[in-house]
């Protein structure tokens, strides 16, 4: 019985990690049809922001939950102004430009902080499930994923700002005719997506280690999760990370971490072959 709980917790935290690290990308893709290939580097910047401010003496929770999203959100705002804004509607060009941005950010951070692994240990200890021990941080991660996901959903569903954002997403011209400035909505959306990525980077930092190249491990997985999810960004990301995270974690248990990941990617390819528009192209079409 204990092993069921232990494995269950692992699966849940795997799903939570995938969900957290994909949300920022999903917001930007879902709202703006922009694929931000520098997403992995936004995670990396969030992790660095958290670790540097924690080292400067700030409380670790404030560093992770407040400083990281603020810093990366600010960076996102600048990047939207300088690069993304010039490329709206040119999806492939945006992908290429953000890929270049990702390389440039890796290079810049390597130059400043060096190519060494920094890290901090998970701030909460561990607890026992029968004869197994589990990290309490895994529980925190699951809770954080629920709160973050619920928060974004509620924001979009119930607040006036969410209504304006959804309206612009559905029909930017109509929204513009009704007195909304799509440019501003896009700028805020991009900054918000970046902030979520920054927060995610800080949250995963304790177990992933902080290096300039850490983003590469996540960008592909998040990209595939969001694409597999399809058009409805929240429902899609939720269902895709649930499915792919479960496959990856169970695969890891059955074989090795590498083959767990390979299994997840194979499932994603098969899924895209069967549902070329992603999961929400067929199911949950009318959801957010």
């Amino acid at each position: 019985m204990d092993i069921v709980f232990a494995v269950g917790l692992q699966v849940l935290s795997g799903v939570a990690t995938l969900l957290i690290t994909s949300l920022g990308l999903a917001i930007i893709f879902g709202m703006m049809r922009v694929i931000n290939l520098a997403h992995g580097e936004f995670l990396m910047l969030g992790a660095y922001a958290a670790i540097l401010s924690a080292r400067a003496g700030l409380n670790i929770w404030i560093a992770m939950l407040v400083v990281a999203p603020l810093v990366v959100g600010g960076i996102g705002l600048v990047i939207e102004r300088l690069i993304i804004r010039r490329l709206y509607g040119r999806m492939v060009d945006t992908m290429l430009a953000t890929w270049g941005l990702s390389l440039a950010l890796i290079g810049a951070v390597t130059m400043i902080f060096g190519n060494t692994v920094a890290g901090f240990s998970a701030p909460l200890g561990s607890f026992a499930i029968g004869s197994f021990t589990a990290s309490a941080y895994a529980l925190f991660l699951i809770a954080a994923a629920i709160v973050l996901f619920g928060g974004i959903w509620a924001l979009l569903r119930f607040t006036p700002a969410g209504l304006i954002a959804r309206g612009t997403m559905q029909n930017a011209e109509m929204a513009s005719a009704l007195g909304v400035s799509p440019d501003r909505v896009y700028a805020v959306t991009f900054a918000a997506g970046s902030a979520v990525s920054g927060l995610a980077g800080a949250l995963i930092a304790p177990f992933s280690g902080v290096v300039p190249t850490m983003g590469a491990a996540f960008i592909a997985k998040s990209f595939i999760t969001v694409i597999t999810g399809g058009a409805a960004m929240l429902a899609g990301t939720f269902s895709a990370s649930g499915l792919l995270g479960t496959v990856a974690t169970l695969g890891t248990f059955a074989t090795t971490p590498v083959f767990g990941e390979v299994m997840m990617l194979v499932v994603a390819i098969v899924l895209l072959r069967l549902l070329p528009q992603g999961i929400t192209g067929r199911f949950f079409r009318r959801s957010l």
Partner: peptide, 20 residues
């Protein structure tokens, strides 16, 4: 003192923006 990734990345961004 300069990382090659920084140069490559900057070139790509500029290429997309200036001469697509």
């Amino acid at each position: 003192e300069i990382n090659p990734s920084l140069i490559l990345g900057a070139i790509l961004v500029l290429a997309v923006l200036v001469m697509p």
